[in-house]
Design a protein around this nucleic acid. Structure first.
Lengths: 249, 249
DNA sequence: CGAACGTTTGAGATGACTCAAGCGTTGTGG
DNA sequence: CCACAACGCTTGAGTCATCTCAAACGTTCG
């Protein structure tokens, strides 16, 4: 079940069994990728999209001198360049961060789905809008938060997304990123990210070492990063984060 | 023709006459708004979307102390909260910047379009993805550009969008924003935006006074802001900016 | 005329950057 | 199995871009 995590626990957009089966049938191929490989380049016409099954990928824009600004990271379950279906051409590059496995879905299949299954099409649309909502949270992060808060916000977001994907227990998760990657995400230098990490560690908020993130005080990390997970559209009935445990109705 | 500017000159997504007529028929109402009024608040369920006809609107997120980070501005022709159709609930607020006129399209009509007209649906989807592409350019702006370049980038982008909407001649356009608005867009303070504006003026790049933007040297402003309009998906055959005039094939 | 709002300027504070160097870990080939 | 190269992490010192605080100025509108 390659589509197992796609739209999992997303409010009003989880797939029905029939929809899931249709999407599985649309997969033409499953590929594995090495770490730090470019998957798609800006401006190239694309006739397929990529559903990430395992590992981490990213999307980024280059500045004049070749420095990258990451505009998204993707976790298993993300249909990461689904927007290439209506757009035909991407405005950014796509690359792996870690080694990864992904399912390939030809646009001809998506075309057929668009013609036959309006409800599934609406859910695919939803998925691309979820990415846009995450873009907006990143804009907030870059525009309004200082360095410590940016990193805190990023870690809270990634934790929440991985909980939703079943890849974090809400406290600890594997994240195969370097501090340089975090710098490209948060609009900071590597050196400064290192100082931020030290501060988070010394303040007892979070430890990020050798690709393992361990959140020590989720409440304070959330407050520091002004993180509000509403934009992730996670179903209220989904497995909640430990800190927001509420009685079930 | 309220939909006149919607997807105008957008690569592969311009509306056919029939599609335009269908969309016109979907409009339930045309409203006018005063400047600086909130149109929709984050978290409220929405059952309609808004096609901007005249004026400028914006979308923003608040930080803890109530300061705003704008995540989008919208110009005439933008279907600015179309993403509320698949999403049902917005993750941000929507407000007017200037006085504005907008057409209201109930989601029930969009539902009907989604069932009947897959090609038009794909174009509506495209429109929301264009907004996402602009979000990414804004991420680049905030993450990789210094203050001068951020403002330059913003002015180039807005110029290009208004040219596409037929509201800029490529050199001069009306933009009813204050320097405080530009600050909320560029993640800067009002004071610093003022200093940037002075510098752009003194360098002979651009003058922004009393709601009129006058670009004096588009080539240098474009270079300063590292602006590349590819992400706006403007049709190659559309009326080009003066600086990129090319022979027609 | 006065109030409200937006713009402009100055002076000092500070968060993040740059440059530079050293340290630790991992993987590889001699 | 050791040596060393490559890579990522860590730290220090000095610089600079942007922020903060404060005040003045100009314009519009009632």
């Amino acid at each position: 079940m390659f589509t197992e995590r796609f739209l999992r626990d997303k409010r009003g957009a989880s797939l029905t069994a029939a929809e899931r089966a249709r999407l599985e049938a649309a997969i033409s191929e499953v590929r594995t990728y090495k770490p730090r490989k470019i998957i798609a380049k800006a401006g190239e016409p694309l006739d397929q999209s990529t559903l990430l099954i395992e590992g981490f990928m990213c999307r980024y824009l280059d500045d004049r001198s070749g420095l990258r600004q990451l505009v998204a990271i993707h976790v298993p379950g993300d249909f990461l360049d689904l927007h290439a279906f209506p757009l035909k051409v991407l405005d950014h590059d796509v690359a792996t961060l870690t080694g990864a496995t992904a399912a390939i879905v030809p646009h001809s299949e998506l075309e057929a789905i668009a013609d036959e299954m309006p409800e599934l099409t609406r859910k695919l649309w939803f998925s691309t809008l979820l990415d846009a909502a995450i873009h907006r949270a990143w804009l907030f992060r870059l525009g309004r938060l200082d360095a410590n808060a940016r990193v805190a916000h990023f870690l809270c977001e990634t934790n929440a997304r991985l909980v939703s994907a079943g890849l974090s227990d809400g406290r600890r998760f594997a994240l195969g990123l370097t501090q340089a990657d975090v710098a490209e995400i948060c609009g900071l230098t590597t050196v400064h990210v290192n100082r931020v990490m030290r501060q988070l560690r010394e303040d007892g908020l979070c430890v990020f070492r050798s690709s393992l993130v361990e959140i020590l005080d989720l409440a304070r990390l959330t407050a520091l990063g002004q993180f509000n997970p509403a934009y992730l559209y996670i179903d209220d009935d989904a497995n909640p984060l430990p800190s927001v445990q509420r009685p079930r109705s």
